[in-house]
Design a protein around this nucleic acid. Structure first.
Lengths: 214, 214
DNA sequence: TAGATTGTTAATCGATTAACAATC
DNA sequence: TAGATTGTTAATCGATTAACAATC
């Protein structure tokens, strides 16, 4: 399956990993790496790595390999990590707080601009540098600030209503931590799902399978 | 790529979604569904769904379709959600607390049995029904209780040490929320990664691509 | 230059889709 | 029985791997 850029989703999903590996290498003073060395480290094949990079242009040098810093930088550009997409967080529970603290502290292409919660008791409390706003303030806020993305850390049963509301206010991309299937009601929005339950169930299956072997 | 059971990973990763869709349908009083109706709902093809289910046996009835409750139940069995794998949580920050509260409250194949943190100040504080234990108590606890799985909600720079320690104490499966690549140091352990940063970067790329289109 | 390693094309493999006979 | 829909085999498609000429 290709995305709108013509790059296959399997390649796209490998880009962040490449970026992070190359950044680490560069930070550790390793200047160059060959596709086969990187393949070894990442558990891929050298062919695959060369194919992947060549979707975006020639970043290597024959007989030398790839310059880690340069390639990391190129990948940052490809991923758009220099972007400044405005994001609002809906749901200031433990999950929301963790996401705000760990994922929006660095240059990841997004800038968190507000935190909302439906609980009146949380209004005004702090999440990092943000004072929690009540959901009643959402409409005015969106009209004024036109956030690009919403991060949904709300309970499954609230997700549908919140997503529809945000869509009506012009938010067209979602980082969705709820189990609700936003794409089914908003087929034209961009939705990136983080389905923790799926991940845990998969682990369960695999552990069960592993045990069967022994 | 096949796992040890001979089932391809792409099929395995669809199982939790099937399970949840079918459970929802059943809970909403919908008794039967055809592969084409389910395909429509889930954004897959009917062929794919029939192929997937038939990896595990014939759950349908010609001319009728699939019984939702029965199939959900079969999938729960296949996934091993009736298991009772003991799990310990390492890291009682916001992320750890969220995971403890939301993912281990239901029948997901695991039972949380303890929560650890390296911060002495958190010792004795509660996470749900658990009193946080200090990491100093980890060794004795593992020797006595032999947990099957560890959930790593620790900072990236602590993950390596913690994973090696747990490995030495007999823990051979990990639900890893850190960015550290556990598999590279423990190739024989089962590791399920939740790489939130990758997910966010992917979203960044896709939003950027979408914008280019318009 | 010789050695190394890329970029790129061709071959293989696996996953998805299509088709249809089986059967409820 | 006729209609519907599965289970399953065959065809297609796409992703991964292998190979090698280009070139630093």
């Amino acid at each position: 399956m290709k995305d709108s850029t013509g790059i296959s989703m399997s390649v796209i999903r490998r880009l962040p990993r490449y970026y992070q590996y190359l950044t680490d290498l560069s930070n550790n003073g390793i200047e160059r790496i060959s596709s086969s060395e990187l393949a070894e480290k990442m558990g891929l094949t050298a062919s695959q790595i060369r194919q992947d990079f060549n979707c975006f242009g020639g970043f290597g040098l024959q007989g030398y390999g790839y310059n880690t810093a340069q390639l990391a930088n190129a990948l940052a550009g490809i991923l758009g990590l220099d972007s400044d997409f405005s994001a609002i967080l809906i749901g200031a529970g433990n999950l929301g707080k963790a996401v705000a603290a760990h994922l929006f502290s660095e240059q990841n292409g997004f800038r968190l601009i507000a935190v909302f919660d439906s609980d009146k008791k949380l209004e005004g409390k702090k999440v990092g540098k943000f004072s929690i706003l009540h959901m009643d303030a959402l409409e005015d806020f969106c009209k004024q600030n036109k956030p690009v993305t919403a991060v949904l850390c709300v309970p499954d049963n609230a997700a549908k209503e919140v997503a529809l509301k945000l869509d009506s206010l012009g938010v067209k991309s979602f980082w969705n931590f709820s189990h609700f299937d936003i794409s089914s009601i908003l087929p034209n929005s961009r939705v990136e799902n983080v389905h923790l339950k799926d991940s845990l169930m998969t682990l369960c299956f695999l552990i069960k399978s592993d045990m069967g072997k022994n």
